[in-house]
Computed example of a mutant assay.
Amino acid sequence: MKPVIDCIYTDGACLGNPGPGGWGAVLYFQDGSVYEIGGAERETTNNRMELQAAIASLQLFRDSGQTKPIQLYSDSQYLIKGLTQWLKGWKKKGWKTSTGKAVLNQDLWQLLDQLNNSLVTWKHVPAHQGIAGNERCDAIARHFAQGQQPNLKKTLEFPLTANSDTVAEVKQTIQSETPEPIASKTLANPMEELEERSLEDSRLIQGDRMTGLNHLIESLRIADEIAQKGYLISSSELAELMNVNASAVTSRGSHWSWRNWVVSRVRREGNQILWQLERAEG
């Protein structure tokens, strides 16, 4: 019996943003099998790596010929909201944003649009919260971004179908982004080795900070668009935007401030409380 994909996790990483980047994806199967993939680019951005991880995953899902729905998990709001909320508007505007600017990473978004499947449900997960699939993808992506070749788990053999053309396409995509092995260096003394490790640690810390800032800027941009267009959002959506628990939203009362916005409770619809964001004066 052909193994059935249960869910997929994807992630991207970038040192410097822009800088060396990597991506990783883990496919989990209903029989307990695991299939991991990843790759790298020498000069890229974190967002492009997030998109590339999703592209490679969708290529493999398409190649499997599976008709059973799956869920694809990512900690990238940029990826999830882009596919589920912004893409339709971008296409109507000729790949322009609501402000008339050209959509960034249009080449990857167009490929994602072609590969996206109604059988795939896109789910956002918080980063670095101990979720096994998310943590593993993050580790794979970071290894590739650092120019290292991680030990990828493949407890079953791909392809899952006999379509050799599409299999070759997937393998070519992945292999073309696999970094060349970094030549080993002979260090003169232990202090030199310590200094090199410290430098690499500082680069990783900088990369983490830049990734965090990148997510923050994206969240603030989304909040500004919600306020400008007068959208109403639920407590859970607001909590996701603020990166807090839903209880932290509902416990604040009906009118409060968050960063550059005033948040007001508007009404209740069924079990959901709807909120409005307004840009604070000054």
Rank of each mutant, 00 (worst) to 15 (best):
280 A>G: 12
221 R>S: 15
249 V>D: 06
33 S>D: 03
82 G>E: 00
171 K>Y: 14
175 Q>P: 11
246 A>C: 13
63 D>R: 07
49 M>L: 11
149 Q>R: 01
232 L>D: 09
243 N>R: 14
239 A>L: 07
39 G>N: 02
256 W>P: 05
111 L>H: 15
42 R>L: 13
272 Q>L: 15
184 S>C: 08
18 P>T: 08
66 Q>F: 06
218 E>S: 15
163 N>I: 09
100 G>Q: 00
170 V>I: 10
85 Q>P: 06
38 G>A: 02
281 E>H: 05
148 Q>N: 08
165 D>Q: 15
230 G>M: 09
240 E>M: 08
269 E>D: 13
204 L>D: 05
222 I>A: 14
132 A>L: 15
20 P>A: 05
77 Q>S: 09
81 K>I: 10
239 A>D: 10
243 N>I: 08
280 A>D: 15
38 G>H: 03
188 A>R: 06
212 G>V: 10
197 R>V: 10
101 K>N: 11
52 Q>L: 14
211 T>V: 13
245 N>P: 08
199 L>G: 04
231 Y>P: 09
260 N>A: 12
43 E>W: 13
241 L>M: 07
148 Q>Y: 10
254 S>V: 12
9 Y>Q: 01
259 R>D: 14
170 V>N: 07
40 A>Q: 01
202 S>T: 11
249 V>T: 06
176 S>D: 12
259 R>Q: 13
132 A>T: 12
238 L>G: 02
5 I>G: 00
62 R>Y: 14
111 L>Q: 15
86 W>M: 02
216 L>G: 05
4 V>P: 01
14 C>K: 05
93 K>L: 10
177 E>G: 14
124 H>T: 04
155 T>I: 02
70 I>L: 06
68 K>R: 08
183 A>F: 08
190 P>F: 09
116 N>M: 10
55 I>Q: 02
58 L>E: 08
61 F>V: 01
73 Y>W: 07
55 I>H: 01
253 G>W: 11
109 W>A: 01
2 K>T: 00
27 L>N: 00
142 R>L: 11
33 S>W: 04
262 V>W: 08
58 L>T: 05
172 Q>Y: 15
162 A>I: 03
13 A>G: 03
114 Q>P: 10
10 T>P: 00
128 H>L: 09
253 G>D: 13
140 I>Q: 02
99 T>Y: 08
281 E>M: 09
235 S>H: 11
267 R>I: 04
